[in-house]
């Protein structure tokens, strides 16, 4: 759904480039993403039509209608991002920190329900749990993780000891191994 909105905005303003924060360590098909990722005029990602990027020499030439998704943080890891936030004291969204929140358990994911957008299915109920989000994506497809890390130090300490990957909360990734690849072909960031 946010993919559609993004595509409409790119079409309307005819941007040559859109910058994103995707990193190669997030997911397997992202591990093969370019820093300058070429998209067709229809915003599709063609894995076979991507340019080699030796050294730091990026080929930024494109034809009319084509665009780039640019990922300057490609080689950062989740750890790097949090270290950088700590060093530079960058403000972050409170959802990244643990707090008691109204949660519905659905298909193994912890979905926050704090308004009427999401309807409960039979047998589901809302309970208050101490959770935080490691990743923020589409609602209601982004699950929280149980956590007590309420500040930066705790988040970094918790991540060091984590046994699950960052995108584990993303329902969208779990359909099949190549789920993200398909989403990217449709224009997903």
């Amino acid at each position: 759904m946010k993919t559609e909105a993004l595509k409409q905005a790119l079409d309307k303003y005819k941007f040559d480039m859109a910058f994103g924060g995707a990193r190669r360590d997030e997911e397997k098909s992202r591990a093969k993403e370019r820093v300058f990722s070429l998209r067709t005029p229809e915003h599709r990602w063609d894995a076979k039509n991507q340019r080699p990027e030796p050294w730091r020499l990026f080929n930024t030439r494109k034809k009319k209608g084509e665009s780039f998704r640019v990922f300057p943080l490609s080689n950062w890891t989740e750890q790097d991002v949090w270290d950088y936030i700590a060093i530079e004291n960058i403000p972050v969204v409170p959802l990244y920190f643990a707090a008691p929140r109204p949660i519905v358990k659905r298909d193994g994911a912890l979905i926050m329900k704090d308004d009427e957008r999401m309807e409960l299915k039979p047998g589901e109920s809302v309970e208050t749990m101490m959770v935080r989000f490691r990743t923020l994506g589409c609602y209601p497809l982004t699950g929280a993780v149980e956590s007590s890390a309420a500040n930066l130090d705790d988040v970094i300490a918790e991540m060091r000891g984590s046994r699950v990957s960052e995108r584990q909360g993303r329902v969208i990734d779990q359909d099949s191994g190549a789920s993200m690849e398909e989403k990217k072909q449709e224009g997903y960031f």
Binding site: E27, S29, A47, A178
Partner: peptide, 10 residues
């Protein structure tokens, strides 16, 4: 399979 991420590769 941990690293071969594209479906064509698999």
């Amino acid at each position: 399979l941990l690293v071969d991420g594209l479906s064509a590769e698999r």
